Computed example of a mutant assay.
Amino acid sequence: MKKNMKVIVSIITLVVIAAIFAFNQYDKKGVYSTTNYYLDTVNEISVINVRKSKADKILPGADKVVLDINNAMSSHLPSSEVSKINDNAGISPVKVSNDTFKVIQKSIAYSKLTNGKFDIAIGPLTSMWNIGNDKARVPEKSEIDKALPLINSDNIILNSKNTTVYLKEKGMKLDLGGIAKGYCADKVAEYLKENGVDNAIVNLGGNIYVMGKNEVKKDFVVGIQNPLQKSSDSMASVKLSNKSIVTSGIYERFLEKDGKIYHHMLDPDTGYPFDNELSSVTIFSDKSVDGDALSTSIYGLGLENGMKKVKSMDGIDAVFITKDNKVYITDGIRKDFKILDDKYTLVN
């Protein structure tokens, strides 16, 4: 199947489709891709400047990496390890795979780093709001108040010797939606490198990791989505190589009721969507798992505190876009950052 894929500019976008599928595709420029629908989103993995025989051999394995993580970490699958953990909350520990254990361990560390703005124990809230699904609704305040005490990653008990996970309180639920795609992108990149692929794009529903160079042996130019547009238009671009880029924005998934918009990024402290001056935050990092966990939590911290947090971390850069179209960036990406839409103003 042919597809006119622009490899030089990879646009961050969220595509919604209703089927699980995987197929290989070939582009005249020498780009081979596989597309699937796991982790509740469309994923595309592209290898660049390799032989077709090698791509045909490698790409099915890349699909399997994504499928395995989906099957272990999706809270929507009754058979997943996360669902088993949730089903046994307050009852007994559950033995899990090394991948799931590592993700939960990393998540707890990020909860401490962000003062609880990132907390995978947020499951009781996300399942209640259900934003992005047909049954999305605005919960009653009494329901939210009842769920809030359950959101506490300190009550996630890990046993590294037995690789077990135990939720201390009945009613607790884990939701790895804010970190699983990032971990998966890193695993796919690792798999590709182990199989001799030097240049690739891993795009897991907008969690993008670019490896090496594009088909003309230059850095990739990755677009940052325009928060004012529902399409994949970019408001800025950044040149990147061997980097992850993850965006969280109020335009991605939302619920509208009585003229009010409720976006999908929920504050573990209030039970309602984060409410601040930002429309989106984009995180650049060496590891996508870091960018995934940070994008939402840094958004939750707001512009001033979020910028301070990013500047205090090695190897992390960010783009902040405010609701009045002002753009703030960190120094590490300054020379490679370019605004494409004159509605936006670079402030710092």
Rank of each mutant, 00 (worst) to 15 (best):
M1C: 11
N4H: 04
I20M: 10
N24C: 03
N24E: 03
N24Q: 03
Q25K: 04
G30N: 03
G30I: 02
V31A: 15
S33T: 07
L39M: 13
L39K: 04
V47T: 08
D56C: 05
I58Q: 07
V65C: 06
V66W: 06
S75Q: 02
L77N: 15
P78S: 14
S83E: 07
S83N: 10
S111L: 00
S111G: 09
K112L: 05
F118T: 06
D119H: 07
G123Y: 03
G123W: 04
T126I: 12
M128P: 06
K135D: 12
A136E: 13
P139K: 09
E140Q: 11
A147N: 11
L148W: 13
S153Y: 03
I156S: 08
I156Q: 08
L158F: 00
L158D: 01
K161E: 11
T163K: 15
L167S: 10
L174E: 09
D175A: 01
L176W: 11
G177A: 12
C184G: 08
K187H: 02
K193L: 13
E194A: 14
G196Q: 11
N203S: 09
L204W: 10
L204S: 08
E215G: 11
V216Y: 13
Q225S: 13
Q229P: 05
Q229S: 15
S232H: 11
D233P: 01
M235E: 05
K239S: 15
K239H: 14
K239A: 15
K243G: 00
G249T: 01
G249L: 01
R253N: 15
L255I: 07
I261N: 01
Y262G: 10
H264Q: 13
L266F: 02
T270S: 14
G271M: 09
V281S: 04
D290R: 14
A293S: 15
L294I: 06
S295Y: 13
S295L: 11
T296L: 04
G300W: 05
G302K: 02
G306P: 00
K309M: 10
S312I: 04
V319I: 14
V327K: 09
I329L: 02
I329D: 02
D336R: 09
D336S: 13
F337Y: 03
K343H: 00
